[in-house]
Design a binder for these strands. Structure first.
Lengths: 368, 368
DNA sequence: ACGATTTGCCAAAACGTTTTAGTTGGCTAT
DNA sequence: ATAGCCAACTAAAACGTTTTGGCAAATCGT
């Protein structure tokens, strides 16, 4: 009868981790039985299983992950590959997605390997992870049209999930919101309310999410029989900093503009003071609508300024990314797309049209 | 003579990764020779080595990391464990440190395993990584006094590096700036310029960096023979959101206060408008000093408001964390502390005292 | 009572590397 | 000629798991 020891004391005394062999020796059983007992196989006696789990807990045994990974050809690691652009990590949108992913990863027992690469070493970095077997799959963020990462990953057959979509999205797993549909509806709403010159303060259109939003407002104007220049485009490459301020100033400088759609509440916030003090347009205050990614600390309903918005949780999207990857890797399910739901909130006075009827049949199911 | 194939084609055709056995078979050599050729041992002929490296490149061979990790007992993985508090990932300070760490990790061929845990599962999470051998070491961020994580990690003997210090810092590796010294000097500077009631808008004093800053201004007042209430404390738990605004408003409401020290430029920015429009104090504009972590997009020299600051790069700190861990794990060096340098910039008119002479001998080398 | 089935356990192989402890053959020094 | 040495290679063990295939004892059905 050995006295119970603090697991960390065992670790320190041994100078190495407790292995399955230690357990086998301790209990006079084979390592096969230990393994099968701990992994819940039915060919282990209930009494034996109890002895094994007790001893494992007492000695603080945790299976060596590298041995498991080697033999099972599964790592329970996900790679999250980012361009080595420090600005990225300062983007609250990214942080929000990551927070959601980390929470779900914990639940599903995955680890996220975060890594950065030099601007011109994108594919080689993915290739390294594919070939050295250190991850089960990849998260691809901010896809571009004809994204090389997608091309590469489809080629290798490795599991991956894209946050966003591009033209081949029916062939891989993705998580996205309805960028096109949402912005189409916001655009039609403003048009229905009489606005004839509207600013879109958009994100970087090298990325599809922003491109699709642009396409949506353009189509909305066209479908309403309005001229091409109904929407005036302003692009920001990063939501932090003063882009929101300077672009808001530019938009307000055009006295014909009576409404602004923001692609992120961060851009709106940065132009907040300008909006609050902007003189009326044609007798009405400037109309403001925004994408609301449900970022913490940034709730559009708590602003003094009345803002219409469409809300979709980036946090949920992060969680869904890991869930989809787990479905592919753990359950062998085929890749599938997950649409994160969106909720509209339209301020009184703008609410003159049903937002559900503004996406015409020929625009349905468009991704961008 | 086989024709050259695209590495990914080989991968797809094989249905599995290229292994060292494949290389051995291809070249008619033993796996020992392949291994030793690729790892630069001298007992391999130059011609043979060339053949091996060529074949490896041609077939896109990368050693299976899990096999390497198992046999070498080294993972080249670092765990970055965070409380599952989504707010954390929205903190630009954290993002900045992480960006620096990721850059250095790439250089030193490490991967960062980012993970979150429920609030009450901190130590078990560390324990899991220690016991399952999935990482070489840990980064510990935002230490508290008598931090349990440090206690636990010192106990196990696993490598770790702390970003910040606590009382046992001579026994482990750390990276830090001189919180105490810097804030002592800022405090003495303001005192020397005649301020007798000064606000410190500080971070969360559950964390040592903020506690040490508090201690520093308190000591500075004491050393100057001023009363305890010379410094008025305001604490914020998170630098985003409206804390900077509300705390600035509170500070300005005290008409005796003639100067404010901010613990972060983010807090300052959030109170920026209030500062710009604040009425003079005793005939002079309110004096403002801040910590400048060299965050991107937030350069205090570009503000309309003249601000004294002490700058220390969080990005560099992040890089130093990984460098220190590599020194311990790869070179077997004993743990050591790295002080990230700080630079003062004092606005004209406040610069009436030499900032270098304000830290008295009996305060030297204080960590807090 | 006895063959068939079930229960509970185990030896050995496999995963893909690195490392140890060689072996072989050719060259050098005497 | 031959002992000694060096250059270039390799067989086998080891890392710590999971899995395959099997075996012995206990239980069951008739």
């Amino acid at each position: 009868m050995e006295k119970p020891r603090k697991p960390s004391a065992v670790l320190a005394a041994l100078g190495r981790s407790v292995t399955i062999k230690d357990l086998a020796a301790e209990l006079g059983l084979s390592i096969t039985t230990i393994s099968r007992a701990l992994n819940g196989y039915s060919d282990v006696g209930e009494k034996t299983r109890r002895r094994v789990t007790d001893a494992a807990a007492r000695l603080g045994y945790h299976p060596n992950r590298n041995a498991q990974r080697l033999v099972m050809q599964r790592t329970h690691n996900v790679a999250w590959v980012q361009t080595d652009n420090e600005l990225k990590y300062l983007d609250p949108h990214f942080a929000e997605v990551m927070a959601g992913a980390l929470g779900q990863a914990r639940v599903l027992n995955y680890d996220i390997v975060l890594t950065s690469h030099a601007i011109d070493r994108e594919i080689p970095t993915y290739d390294r992870y594919v070939r050295d077997n250190s991850v089960d799959g990849f998260i691809v963020d901010l896809p571009r049209e004809n994204d090389e990462r997608v091309t590469y990953l489809m080629d290798t057959g490795r599991a991956f999930v894209v946050h966003g979509r591009e033209r081949r999205c029916d062939r891989y797993g993705w998580v996205d919101m309805d960028n096109y549909g949402n912005f189409y509806r916001l655009a039609r709403l403003l048009i229905a309310n009489g606005h004839r010159r509207i600013a879109l303060i958009n994100g970087d259109e090298h990325f599809n999410y922003a491109l699709y939003r642009h396409n949506a407002v353009r189509d909305a104007a066209q479908d309403a029989g309005l001229p091409e220049d109904t929407f005036v485009l302003f692009n920001s490459s990063h939501p932090m900093g003063d882009a929101g301020f300077t672009l808001t100033a530019s938009a307000l400088a055009d006295r014909e503009i009576t409404a602004i759609i923001y692609s992120s509440i961060l851009l709106l916030m940065s132009g907040y003071e300008l909006l609050m003090t902007a003189p009326d347009r044609k007798g009405r205050p400037i109309a403001v609508a925004t994408m609301d990614d449900n970022l913490r600390h940034l709730d559009p309903t708590r602003l003094a300024l009345r803002v219409s918005f469409v809300r979709s949780s980036l946090h949920d999207a992060g969680a869904a990314l890991i869930a989809e990857l787990s479905r592919q890797c753990d359950e062998g399910r085929p890749p599938s797309g997950t649409m994160i739901p969106s909720v509209f909130q339209i301020i009184p006075g703008l609410d003159r049209t049903s937002i559900d009827e503004t996406l015409p049949v020929h625009r349905r199911n468009r991704i961008g």
